[in-house]
């Protein structure tokens, strides 16, 4: 049994956990609160069949699919700024260069950095959030599931 989607997501959490200065790394946990910060949350992304792969028989033939997981980084400090930038820089470098993730996507696959959104506000301290988006293209081999 081999589920490339799950392997990518599990490895993504491992890669995010290597980012320096994070106190918390969780997957699919959307309960964000101050005591966890600085924290990163890996959210499983939607999966879509790449255009042109759908429709022909046999139904269980391999497909090329895309998944777009998000990594949310939240931080609270006296002065939000370069610390958030550093998290983004480390995450983009580590994810795109990770040999295991690149290997999992296969010869027809790819990893793309899609961009990030930022949010700032006040709690007890200044709070900053970063939503970083990647796209993974990889084969869905139905007979291996």
């Amino acid at each position: 049994m081999s589920d490339i989607r799950e392997s990518i997501l599990a490895r993504l959490v491992e890669v995010v956990a290597t980012v320096p200065n994070l106190r918390t790394v969780k997957r699919n946990d959307t309960d964000y609160f101050s005591a966890l910060m600085p924290a990163a949350f890996v959210l499983d992304g939607d999966e879509d069949v790449v255009s042109g792969n759908e429709g022909s028989r046999p139904s269980n033939r391999p497909l090329l699919v895309e998944m777009s997981p998000e990594i949310h980084v939240i931080e609270q400090s006296g002065t939000i700024g370069s610390d958030i930038t550093a998290f983004r820089r480390d995450l983009v470098k580590l994810v795109l260069a990770d040999a295991t993730l690149n290997s999992l996507t296969g010869s027809n696959g790819a990893i793309q950095y899609l961009g990030c959104d930022s949010t700032f506000a006040w709690l007890e301290k200044q709070w900053g959030g970063l939503q970083i988006r990647f796209r993974f293209k990889y084969p869905l081999i139905v007979n291996d599931l």
Binding site: F41, L43, H72, L123, G129, Q131
Partner: peptide, 8 residues
């Protein structure tokens, strides 16, 4: 915070 919320 994107698709989630931060409580504080």
């Amino acid at each position: 915070a994107g698709t989630s919320d931060v409580r504080g």
